[in-house]
Design a protein around this nucleic acid. Sequence first.
DNA 1: CGCATACTTTACGTTAACGTAAACTTCCCC
DNA 2: GGGGAAGTTTACGTTAACGTAAAGTATGCG
Lengths: 132, 132
Amino acid sequence: MSKKQTYSIGELAREFDVTTRTIRFYEDQNLVNPARRGQTRVYSPADRVTLKLILRGKRLGFSLAESRELIQMYQPSGDNRNQLLALQDKIQQRRDQLNQQLRDIQALQQELDDADQRCEDALTALENPDHV
Amino acid sequence: MSKKQTYSIGELAREFDVTTRTIRFYEDQNLVNPARRGQTRVYSPADRVTLKLILRGKRLGFSLAESRELIQMYQPSGDNRNQLLALQDKIQQRRDQLNQQLRDIQALQQELDDADQRCEDALTALENPDHV
DNA sequence: CGCATACTTTACGTTAACGTAAACTTCCCC
DNA sequence: GGGGAAGTTTACGTTAACGTAAAGTATGCG
């Protein structure tokens, strides 16, 4: 098998293009919990996935607190009915927010297309100054 | 006509659900430039649009600097060829980023759907404890 | 007139998310 | 056995994006 089972902090930092400081900071914030071999941190594939989720959250403008919540959603803990209902509520809120972001992105894409078109027009006008 | 031509800072703050401090801060950052009647700020429909763009940017996780760049993209200033090409380059970068966000959102939506489904399953299991 | 409401400026405070520096250990290599 | 590379802890510093408080002005109203 070629799948690595553990990662050093440096490996993960390189892979995700963050500093080791960042990864340690996430540990401080209880977002990830690597094992230890002596002093040295040893990260599991699960830790790696968690990191991935955090960084995806960052790309969407989520705070670390929000990403933490999202991650916890995937592991519903000691579940009574009320907790499950509350969780579903949070999930729905997230969905609403994501749909808003989708609309925002589509609007922005349209505007960028327009802006790009105006650039094109200006450029061809520069190359082609022989209009009245 | 019913379209308002000017707005007070309080009106805009209420409409967009931000504080007046926030709007004044954006002015400090040269994101918006209201007229004045005496001391009092008077906002135009154009100022209002700018505010809207900033807040949309915030929902997408943009910094104010990024939103400022986006806004400037819509008003290509004194344009020589190189500036236009640079602008197109920036536009393309933004598009790439937006596409990444789209992929992130779709992945997250899928995960939220799954999480929601697991909640449903857990709930029906609670209501229906008569399985082996 | 007095008061409330909405505006103004000035300025210090706050939080999140790391950056940066110092001083230390571990391990490998020639 | 002396580097050098990668890891560690501790701790103070930094930036963005406002919050918050103080003190003053303008305007309408009963």
